[in-house]
Amino acid sequence: MPKDPPAPEREVHIEVRDLDMGYGDFVVMRKLGFQIRRGDVFIIMGGSGSGKSTLFRNMTGLVEPLRGDVLYGGESFTRAEPERREAMLRKMGILYQQGALWSSLTLAENVALPLQQYTRLAAHEIAEIVELKLSLVGLGGFGDFMPGEISGGMRKRAGLARAIALDPEILFFDEPSAGLDPISSKLLDDLIVELSQSLGATVVVVTHELASLFAIGTNGVFLDAETRTMIATGSPRDMLEHSDQKNVRAFLTRGGSGNPTGVGQ
């Protein structure tokens, strides 16, 4: 768990610079700027409709920013040529909200596709890696199942297996605990931390799940729907203890009704 002492010397891995985002004329958030250091578990938090998922979509190139830049390892992603972008995307693994497994492929084929796409491994080598990745998320032996045949929690874990197929340096999680019961969501959190630490990956998590963001977050940004910008950065615990922003405190304490998670004291 994130108990290691802060190491400010770690290099900046991801940087968001002066980012405005929205759809067409509708600006969701403006003037976002923050840095994510290598090895961070970075939480993008905020209320419903504050643009958390939009920020994630901007950072992965699914939506183009209205203005500003996203940099990975100091290199602009937003302004990169398509080939360069593809190379940068190769180092990212993404777990989507509903898993987003390709429904016409089996779990094994789902995990195998990125490997076929980016590596020159032979079929039997790919099969071995696929089996390994599926076992890592506790789905060993489920390779021949179709996504429609397994439960939502399993789909998410399979999505995670696919996300780590290429040993990414950056892992994105869009609402990992959405639609999961508290225990599955806790297990998934543990899995995220475990895998990211063993892979040495930087993790970006979009979530509003308090228990989970306190448990895994080492850094974060708070998006505020009212002011349409970010109003706090830092680790969730720091925010809880030191933030003087009313909305941040209200969010992290469930509207001020005590401290339901029992952490941060």
Partner: peptide, 17 residues
Amino acid sequence: GNMKVTEEIDALQTFGI
């Protein structure tokens, strides 16, 4: 269309496919 709804298309794009 359904693949769009379930983000499967997004997943393809972010895997560079």
